[in-house]
């Protein structure tokens, strides 16, 4: 690998299914060691983009290069260097967790002992003797990630790894994913969870209708939005009239539960509220990627 060359280079990628332009001119680069997220609602073209990057689909036009090589057609030089976790957990039927990971590891010539270590990494040692049919959704996802990583790939593709998991299982999985990234691997993740992208990714590309609308570090995207901070207190603590008088240019709404003040300069508003001892039920919420999406598409984000 030459220094400074990106691990992934995608240029003007296009793929249509009949009339539907699933991916419509997508370009981006992913640097070595980066945690890159493709964020967007269902049907945005994330999975198709990922599958073209993995070499599972042939692009109609445009190019993909991984480590300087094309993944299409099936490129055996590239395959040992990439690890893929598929959207549907692909397991051999009626094998235990240990047998699954050993089988996958052996496809890459990785010994059984090494494969077993991965069960520990994803916290499944106690489940090693259980068949995949008997694992919970979260356990299956973790096993599937372990199977994708057993051969120690430099580049990892994860397609919606937390979809369908309960909040606790999602957060457990996030820890696993952070560890994978911390080991210096390049990770590409698709997700329709805004909080997931915000919490995990170094850089995200926001995708909708087959196009990338914007990309950059989540914090930068949010900051560039220059959206107001929302300060909420319990209704009745302060009248809307009094709230408007706290500072200039405040946007105040009261929905009967909370009184919300939108401002670009939250500090003076907060100290004014403190002076009046009107902090009951206080919550302060900055802009999120949801606001970015709203701003970019003009519509509410719906996963």
């Amino acid at each position: 690998m030459q220094p400074m060359s990106p691990t992934i280079k995608v240029e003007e990628l296009r793929k249509a299914y009949g009339e539907l332009r699933a991916v419509d001119g997508v370009s981006f680069e992913v640097q070595t060691g980066e945690f890159f997220g493709i964020l967007g609602p269902n049907g945005a073209g994330k999975t198709t983009t990922l599958e073209m990057m993995e070499g599972l689909r042939k692009p109609d036009s445009g190019s993909v290069s991984l480590f300087g090589e094309s993944p299409w057609p099936r490129n055996p030089r590239l395959l040992p260097r990439i690890g893929v976790q598929l959207q549907a957990s692909a397991f051999f039927e009626r094998l235990t967790a240990r047998e699954q990971i050993r089988t996958f590891a052996s496809l890459y010539g990785v010994p059984a002992r090494k494969a077993d270590e991965w069960l520990a990494v994803v916290g499944l040692e106690d489940m090693a003797g259980k068949r995949n049919e008997d694992l919970s959704g979260g356990q299956q996802q973790r096993l599937s990630i372990a199977c994708a990583l057993a051969h120690g790939p430099d580049l990892v593709f994860l397609d919606e790894p937390t979809s369908g998991l309960d909040p606790q299982a999602r957060r457990n999985l996030w820890d696993v994913l952070r560890d994978i990234s911390a080991q210096g691997r390049t990770v590409v993740l698709t997700t329709h969870y805004l909080d997931e992208a915000e919490s995990l990714c170094d850089r995200v590309a926001i995708m909708d209708h087959g196009r990338i609308l914007q990309s950059g570090p989540p914090a930068t995207l949010v900051r560039d939005l220059d959206a107001p901070t929302r300060i909420s207190i319990e209704t009745g603590t302060l009248t809307a009239e009094a709230a408007r008088g706290l500072a200039d240019g405040l946007e105040v709404t009261d929905d009967g539960v909370s009184l919300t003040i939108a401002t670009r300069t939250p500090a003076p508003v907060l100290s004014a509220l403190a002076e009046r001892d009107a902090l009951r039920g206080l919550s302060v919420r900055g802009a999120t990627l949801e606001d970015v999406f709203l701003h970019l598409t003009g519509r509410e984000y719906r996963a």
Partner: peptide, 13 residues
């Protein structure tokens, strides 16, 4: 159907 073939295609087997 269970995507095992797809998974195998992504391995060097």
């Amino acid at each position: 159907q269970k995507k095992i073939l797809r998974r195998l295609r992504l391995s060097p087997v």
